[in-house]
Amino acid sequence: MKFGIVINEGPYQHQSSDTAYHFTKAALAAGHTIVRVFYYHDGVNNGNNLATPPQDDRDIVKRWSALSKEHNLDLVVCVAAAQRRGIVDADQAKRSGKHAENLADGFRISGLGQLIETGIEADRLMVFGD
């Protein structure tokens, strides 16, 4: 079965990114496919590779990157939400004259249309948020 995952909240502030992560892992372990993970609202902060959590805590950003690498997951950050919150890839940093890029490995920035497409492609759309 094909799942789409939507995450509306940032890491550490709210449990939704953790719940989504464990759900995604369990779905993959059961042999299901993840069409896409879509990060929306403050959820785009899950793709900020400048995050440096203390060593005794989980590294939520790295954990998503690693899962993406292992299972070839499509991790998409909503462009409008990302721009408002300062999550930028190399290309956008260049175009908008920002001094840094901070999009984590495995993530890409795209439009809200990808959320609708996920809903169309997936058999089930799972929303995690606040």
Partner: peptide, 18 residues
């Protein structure tokens, strides 16, 4: 979490009351 996935598979749609 395995049971959560099974519930999502067994039902044809999911609504999250946030």
């Amino acid at each position: 979490y395995e049971g959560f996935v099974e519930l999502a598979v067994k039902n044809d749609k999911v609504q999250s009351w946030l």
